[in-house]
């Protein structure tokens, strides 16, 4: 593997709550290489979202170390090393789609001409060309989520952190978006960390699948996918795909039995 983009060593995070400490992450060791597509899968409370939030400097670890692009998460955030896609599209209703994508660019001080060029380019990337002047409420849920991905792609971050971005969408839309996301990943060569609770989604998208389990939140299995990078939707019916899905399911079940 090339030098890791995200690297965690004995990473732990304990929340102090009224019911005592909650171990959201415990001794997590993980390397994500450049250009990888890594999925985090596990039941709720396994710390998959927490791991992403720690990498994004939205939560502070209580023990261990994590580096992003060789820096601390805070330095990485301040150098705008990553784009973060949340569960909800979270577009501003008072801004057009173009205006929403322009927002981080305005904040980061890109020139007007550069902004316009990037909005146009990223809208094409997520297949939303022509929707620049529309308002969010004029778009379907899937289109809104695509716009929010475009927003995370608009600036030059080579890492994309995605927290169950398609969780609220129906399966047909989700299939379509998964296909598009793979195409986008192939074109942009970004490193993607993707949180999901869908086994087929994780297997279909990833070069590496991180299986996690709760109480305490920890990594139980890391599966390197043997599927080719070129993946039509039909690949999901191949024995190879089913074998990987089986191993993920076994990992999830094993993590569950420990409790």
């Amino acid at each position: 593997m090339q030098y890791p983009v995200i690297s965690a060593r004995n990473l732990s995070l304990t929340f102090q709550t009224n019911d005592g400490p909650v171990h959201a992450l415990k001794d997590v060791n993980l390397d994500i290489g450049k250009g990888e597509f890594v999925s985090f899968i596990g039941p709720s409370g396994c710390g998959k979202t927490t791991f992403l939030r720690v990498a994004a400097d939205l939560e502070q670890p209580t023990a261990g170390e994590i580096t992003v692009n060789g820096m601390t998460p805070e330095e990485a955030r301040k150098s705008r090393a990553y784009g973060y896609v949340f569960q909800a599209a979270g577009l501003y209703p008072w801004r057009t789609i173009g205006g929403n994508i322009r927002l981080p660019l305005e904040i980061m001080g890109y020139s007007k001409a550069d902004q316009a060029e990037r909005v146009k380019r990223t809208l094409e990337l997520v297949d939303l060309a022509g929707f620049e002047k529309k308002y969010p409420w004029q778009l379907s849920g899937g289109m809104q989520q695509r716009a929010s991905i475009a927003r995370a792609l608009a600036f030059d971050a080579d890492i994309l952190l995605m927290d169950e971005p398609f969780g609220a969408l129906d399966e047909i839309v989700r299939d379509h978006l998964n296909e598009q996301l793979l195409a986008l990943w192939a074109r942009t060569e970004k490193t993607i960390a993707f949180v999901t609770h869908s086994i087929p989604e994780a297997v279909y998208l990833s070069t590496k699948i991180v299986v996690m389990s709760p109480r305490p939140g920890r990594v139980t299995d890391v599966i390197e996918s043997t599927l080719p990078r070129e993946r039509p939707l039909e690949i999901r019916d191949t024995p190879e795909f089913i074998a990987i899905a089986h191993r993920v399911r076994e990992g999830l079940r094993a993590g569950h039995e420990d409790v």
Binding site: A56, D57, L58, R77, K78, R80, Y82, G83, Y84, F86, Q87, A88, G90, L103, P104, I107, M108
Partner: peptide, 12 residues
């Protein structure tokens, strides 16, 4: 929402 404020933070 907390999410929108977090989002602002990710953009520094």
């Amino acid at each position: 929402s907390g999410m929108q404020l977090d989002q602002m933070k990710t953009w520094n």
